[in-house]
C-alpha cells in the first residue's frame, strides 16, 4: 500500500431514478499503485465510466471513500477538484473530445495554459508531446481535418503534455480500427514505461485487454475479479 495512488474503500454510487435510486457501483474496494497499466473491464452498463469519473474527481461517491493522490474525492470543493484534475490527472475519452475550433497545437497546449506555465516552457512541452505521438506535421490542423486515429493521438498528447501522475482513459479505442487501436496502445504502453505514468482504462475491448498488466473485472456495479 506504500505507493498506492488510488484507494477506494466501501464505495457506493447511486443515482436518483424515478422515486427510488439506481445503484451504479456497490461495495467497491480497490487499490491502484503508481505506474500500473490497469484496466477496469466489464460489459456496457457495468459502471466502468462512473468509477473512472469518481476517481478523476468529476463525480463524487454516495458512500465510502475514494482517495486519489491523497485527496478524498467526496470532500473536495469544486475548485480543489479542478486543481487536482488540472495538475495531476489526464483524461482520454472515447470520442476524443478535442476542442473543435482549436488547432492540434492549441488543443495540446490547453491544459498548460490552465497551469499558467510560461510561454517558452509551454511551447517546448507541446512540441515534445506532439513528437512522442508523431503529430508534428499536424500542428496547424483542426480536429475536423484529422482521422479518428490522429484525433485520439492528439487526445493522448493533451493528456500527457503536463506529465500527470494518472491518465484515465475511457474506452480509448472504441472508435478506432484495429491498426490505430494497436498504435495508440503501444504509445500509451511506452509512455507508461518511460514516464512511469499510471494508466487506468475502462474497456471491454480485447485489443486493450492484451496490453494491460492488471485487470479489474466489474459486473453490475461490483468488482468480481
Amino acid at each position: 500500500m506504500a505507493n498506492s495512488i488510488i484507494t477506494i474503500t466501501n464505495m457506493k454510487k447511486q443515482y436518483p431514478e424515478g422515486k427510488g435510486k439506481f445503484t451504479a457501483l456497490d461495495d467497491i474496494n480497490l487499490s491502484i499503485n503508481s505506474g500500473e497499466f490497469t484496466g477496469i473491464v466489464g460489459p456496457s452498463g457495468s459502471g466502468k465510466t462512473t468509477l473512472l469519473n469518481i476517481i478523476g474527481s468529476l463525480d463524487v461517491p454516495t458512500e465510502g471513500e475514494v482517495i486519489t493522490l491523497g485527496e478524498s474525492i467526496g470532500k473536495l470543493t469544486h475548485r480543489k477538484a479542478a486543481k487536482l484534475r488540472n495538475k495531476n490527472i489526464g483524461f482520454i475519452f472515447q470520442t476524443y473530445n478535442l476542442l473543435p475550433v482549436y488547432s492540434v497545437y492549441e488543443n495540446v497546449e490547453f491544459p498548460l495554459l490552465l497551469l499558467k506555465m510560461s510561454a517558452s516552457k509551454r511551447k517546448k512541452a507541446v512540441l515534445d508531446a506532439l513528437e512522442w505521438l508523431g503529430l508534428t506535421d499536424k500542428i496547424k490542423s483542426r480536429p475536423g481535418q484529422l482521422s479518428g486515429g490522429e484525433c485520439q493521438r492528439v487526445a493522448v498528447a493533451r493528456a500527457m503534455v503536463k506529465l500527470p501522475e494518472i491518465v484515465l482513459a475511457d474506452e480509448p479505442t472504441a472508435n478506432l480500427d484495429a491498426e490505430n487501436a494497436h498504435n495508440i496502445l503501444k504509445m500509451m504502453s511506452k509512455l507508461n514505461k518511460e514516464l512511469n505514468t499510471t494508466f487506468l482504462f475502462s474497456t471491454h475491448d480485447e485489443k486493450v485487454i492484451q496490453y494491460l498488466t492488471r485487470q479489474i473485472l466489474l459486473k453490475d456495479g461490483k468488482v468480481v475479479g
Binding site: G56, L58, H78, R79, A82, K83, R85, N86, K87, F91, F93, N97, L98, L99, F110, P111, L114, L115, R158
Partner: peptide, 9 residues
C-alpha cells in the same frame, strides 16, 4: 464538460 475535465473550474 471537456474544459472542466481538463481542470477549469
Amino acid at each position: 464538460g471537456t474544459e472542466i475535465a481538463l481542470g477549469m473550474t
